[in-house]
Simulated scan of single mutants.
Amino acid sequence: MEEQTIFEIIHNMDKVTNNLIIQWGKLFNEDLGISHILVLAHLQHHGNSRPSDIAKALGLTPPTLTHLSEKLVQKQLAVRIVDEKDRRIIYLGITDKGLDIVQKANQDGQILRRNLFEKLTEEERQQLLKIYEKLTGFL
């Protein structure tokens, strides 16, 4: 495969991803980024978690997670919880308001995906799925 073709593929993947992020931001309209929603979704699925564990699971740096969690706490979407046995350990937990935001983000994401993927035929969607599954196996 020619190198230029690889870069064209990567460039087009980036364009699609960036466009999805922009469209989702317009649809969601909550002054939160995708990384904020990923943190909340992690808390929803895994319960109270140490920030360092969340950062590792999501591939974020600890300072980035600190910045994200600050906004989530400020907006009352998450809370900091001190470990009763070791007060040096702090967990992040999701609030009911945070759960509602994750649900709204998922609903808006489904609308966006539906609008995007209905432009493809069923055969094209299946091909795309197989390609992504194959590529995921190499990562």
Score class of each variant (00 low, 15 high):
E2S: 14
E3L: 14
E3Y: 07
T5H: 07
T5A: 09
I6M: 10
F7N: 12
E8P: 01
I9V: 14
I10V: 14
I10M: 13
N12W: 02
M13T: 05
M13D: 04
M13P: 00
D14I: 10
D14H: 14
K15R: 15
K15N: 10
T17W: 06
Q23D: 15
G25R: 12
G25I: 02
G25P: 05
K26T: 06
K26A: 08
L27D: 06
F28C: 05
N29S: 12
N29I: 00
E30P: 02
D31M: 10
D31N: 15
D31G: 10
L32M: 11
L32G: 10
I34S: 12
L38Y: 11
V39C: 10
L40T: 03
A41F: 07
A41D: 15
A41V: 00
H42Q: 11
H42S: 13
H42M: 04
H45E: 14
H45V: 00
H46N: 14
H46C: 03
G47L: 03
P51M: 12
S52I: 12
I54L: 03
A55K: 09
A55P: 08
K56E: 14
A57G: 11
G59N: 06
T61A: 13
T61R: 14
P62C: 10
P62N: 13
T64F: 04
L65T: 12
H67V: 07
L68C: 02
S69W: 01
E70G: 07
E70T: 08
K71V: 12
L72K: 09
V73N: 07
Q74P: 00
Q74A: 14
K75Q: 12
K75I: 00
Q76V: 05
Q76S: 14
L77G: 09
A78F: 02
A78Q: 05
A78C: 06
V79N: 05
I81D: 02
D83C: 04
E84A: 08
K85V: 02
K85G: 06
R87H: 10
R88W: 01
I90L: 03
Y91K: 09
Y91F: 15
L92A: 04
L92P: 01
G93L: 06
G93R: 02
I94Y: 05
T95C: 06
G98W: 00
I101S: 05
V102T: 13
Q103L: 12
A105Q: 12
D108I: 03
Q110L: 12
I111Y: 01
L112E: 04
R113D: 07
R114V: 01
R114D: 08
N115G: 03
N115P: 00
N115E: 14
L116M: 15
L116Q: 09
F117Y: 15
F117P: 05
F117K: 11
F117Q: 10
L120G: 01
E122K: 13
E123N: 09
Q126D: 13
Q126H: 05
Q126V: 10
L128K: 03
L128M: 15
L128C: 01
L129T: 09
I131A: 08
E133G: 00
E133C: 02
T136G: 06
T136L: 13
G137H: 08
F138K: 11
